[in-house]
Design a protein around this nucleic acid. Structure first.
Lengths: 184, 184
DNA sequence: GTCTATAGGGTGATAGAC
DNA sequence: GTCTATCACCCTATAGAC
């Protein structure tokens, strides 16, 4: 039941945002009454924190696993492709949680941001390491400030969730186009 | 006073989202009482529609003016640079409205989306025409589907507003990096 | 044009029965 | 574990005084 509540909340956060997400709405979808939620969670805030962190972790884990699985001498382009595809796949495999994470983070009360910012910083580090590795294997050679490249890639990838319905597996056309820009 | 109300509402929409934006909050910032807002506007919905449309129009007008001002034989790279810089400048020059537009559109009730979607479609058309023009003058020559390129550029540029505080004029470092990716 | 007062409804959270 | 009932509060919108 705990998971059903989280799933229902993630869906609502992704579609409607934090303030528009109500415990009564969550309860309806999860199949219980609003008051019963407090047996499983201490507050709406706690539910939200858990979802925002899970959403980032799905993508973070996917990207780091995909990159770590490559042979140490993999070409820069291969590294970038692995990271981009893993990122997009994770977005669409865990649509509700990842969308909730991306869209709600900066709109949410400060207490919640504080409890989710660390996970996000870790994720930034993973992508930055990935870009460094790609650069030391032949890609992005002209770019001294990988932070800018990071922002562009993240923006392009995370923007896919803005389509209503969220990211689809069909978004992998975007992977090819982005890669052709980065690797040429 | 009408403009003060819109400014206050845009600020709140940009920072807190649609549901978290209250007429009392708007009234406090604008310097009147909540009930008085109804002398100037019919509803919270109407205020929101006006802001979302203005936000897109600021950027849309800036991009189309910048591109139209170029000589007809301008190089593709010049066209792209003009459009990107105009887009980023407009984002930071009208922070509250543009941020509200970008972040609230997909979270807002359907009535509001319907009244703002046309402006957004027009804007998409402007960017797509710009990319076509750039391609016919030497840039993006390998790309058959400019729609994908469009999504990447828009994602990278609009992502700048996700930083708390919104886009800054310092974001023009991003312009150079993005351009180097597109024009190589 | 702006105010006060209020209607009518929704919200997160708690207490206690079962 | 889940329910019902309820508290205290906030919301949009309206009505009528000034």
């Amino acid at each position: 039941m705990r998971r059903r509540i989280l799933d229902a909340a993630a869906l609502s956060l992704a579609e409607n945002g934090y303030q528009a997400t109500t415990l009564r709405g969550i309860a309806d979808v999860a199949g219980l009454k609003a008051g019963s939620i407090y047996y499983h969670f201490a507050s709406k805030e706690q539910i939200t924190v858990e979802i925002l962190n899970e959403g980032v972790e799905y993508v973070s884990d996917a990207v780091s696993r995909a990159v770590d699985a490559l042979p140490p001498d993999a070409e820069g382009r291969t590294v970038l492709k692995a990271a981009i595809d893993a990122h997009l796949s994770a977005l669409s495999a865990h649509k509700a949680y990842t969308r909730a994470s991306i869209r709600c983070f900066s709109m949410v009360p400060e207490d919640i941001r504080e409890q989710t910012i660390e996970t996000r910083r870790d994720f930034d580090g993973i992508w930055l390491d990935t870009l460094k590795r790609a650069r030391s294997h032949g890609s992005l050679t002209g770019h001294t400030d990988l932070r800018e490249v990071h922002r562009i890639i993240l923006g392009a990838l995370n923007w896919t969730i803005e389509k209503r319905g969220g990211p689809s597996t069909r978004d992998h056309a975007l992977s090819e186009t982005l890669l052709s820009l980065l690797a040429s």
